[in-house]
């Protein structure tokens, strides 16, 4: 039993789940047990979207220090806008709407990679600049009456069975798929190798450039998926729908135990961190804490986690 507990404690993601559980317990202690299930359900509901983009951001960050995708919110918005417009509330157009939106997302991914590789712009600036362009495209294309999502999409995004949101189950499936890719495919291994030591990865015969490219595509794709589902959830694509997701996508990666130095990805951690963050927000709301306190605590949390983890130890 002790050995099993120790192994559990060694997993980086267990801390975020522990935190999430602790927060949840504190909350229901405060409410006298009322609404315990509802709190979890709504945390799952809202947290799911952050998890989708968090997974993509995790992959980018894992490919090594300096790699981060700041264009996620913009891609998300563009994807949502395109999806809603193409679908035009008609469920018959759903498939083509999804294809259009995801294709646009992939284009963004390609654009990001071209900026990074051809123009040798650091990923931060590259994804930043492209995000400006993408957001503008989304805003100008999406101006006008807010188009509602087709019913099946809205249902998919909002329906729950026994308190569990359907979309959460789908995202769970996506997470498991990604975890499998990381563990059992050459692509996944290469991502982890590049993040640890890009030069050694090249010398070991791995396809560094293609894998980098694929990863930026993946991040854009996941942002696109999130945009579509989020639009279904919120009854349409709002032009500021991506605003909160930039910092949130990085926060769940860091708090979830993925190393910012690269080479170590943590899928369960994203879940734990997302739940932790949303449960924390809920708890603070129930406690009556002002939004200011919530923001401060989120920030302090991020800083504490990274400070405790410490930075890259220089091997030289």
């Amino acid at each position: 039993m002790n050995a099993a507990l120790k192994r559990l404690g060694d997993q980086p993601w267990s801390w975020s789940f522990l935190g999430a559980t602790a927060v949840w317990l504190m909350t229901i202690a405060f409410t006298g047990g009322q609404g315990a299930g509802e709190i979890l359900t709504s945390a799952l509901s809202f947290g799911t979207f952050t998890i989708i983009v968090g997974l993509g951001q995790m992959m980018v960050i894992t490919t090594g220090p300096g790699n981060v995708d700041l264009s996620i919110p913009a891609t998300m918005t563009l994807s949502g806008v395109i999806a809603m417009k193409v679908m035009d509330t008609d469920s018959a157009n759903m498939l083509i709407g999804i294809v259009a939106a995801l294709s646009a997302s992939l284009v963004v991914g390609v654009a990001n990679y071209i900026l990074i590789r051809l123009l040798r712009i650091p990923p931060i600036i590259a994804t930043l600049s492209s995000s400006f362009l993408v957001l503008s495209t989304a805003i100008s294309y999406g101006r006008g009456i807010r188009i509602k999502p087709p019913l099946p999409l809205a249902d998919f995004a909002t329906v729950r069975y026994a308190g569990v949101p359907v979309v959460a189950v789908a995202v769970l499936g996506l997470s498991i798929l990604l975890a499998l890719i990381l563990k059992r495919t050459i692509y996944g291994r290469t991502v982890l190798a590049i993040g640890q030591n890009e030069r050694a990865a090249w010398l070991a015969g791995l396809k560094v450039k293609s894998v980098r490219f694929a990863t930026y595509l993946l991040s854009a794709l996941f942002a696109g998926i999130c945009g579509i589902v989020q639009s279904g959830f919120s009854g349409g694509a709002a032009l500021n729908m991506g605003d909160d997701f930039l910092l949130a996508s990085i926060a769940v990666v860091v708090i979830g135990g993925t190393s910012v130095a690269g080479g170590k990805a943590n899928v369960p951690g994203i879940w734990g961190a997302a739940l932790f963050m949303y449960l924390l927000v809920t708890m603070l709301n129930i406690f009556g804490a002002s939004p200011g306190v919530r923001l401060i605590l989120t920030g302090v949390m991020i800083i504490s986690v990274i400070t405790l983890a410490g930075g890259e130890k220089t091997t030289r």
């Binding site: 981060v68 923001l295 920030g299 302090v300 990274i306």
Partner: peptide, 26 residues
């Protein structure tokens, strides 16, 4: 001192600044 990535630290800091600002002026 802790050899931390400034991106992550200042990311958290941005929440802190915003939170204090919102506390002062909701």
């Amino acid at each position: 001192i802790r050899n931390l990535p400034s991106i992550v630290v200042t990311l958290g800091l941005s929440f802190v600044w915003l939170g204090i600002a919102v506390l002062i002026l909701p």
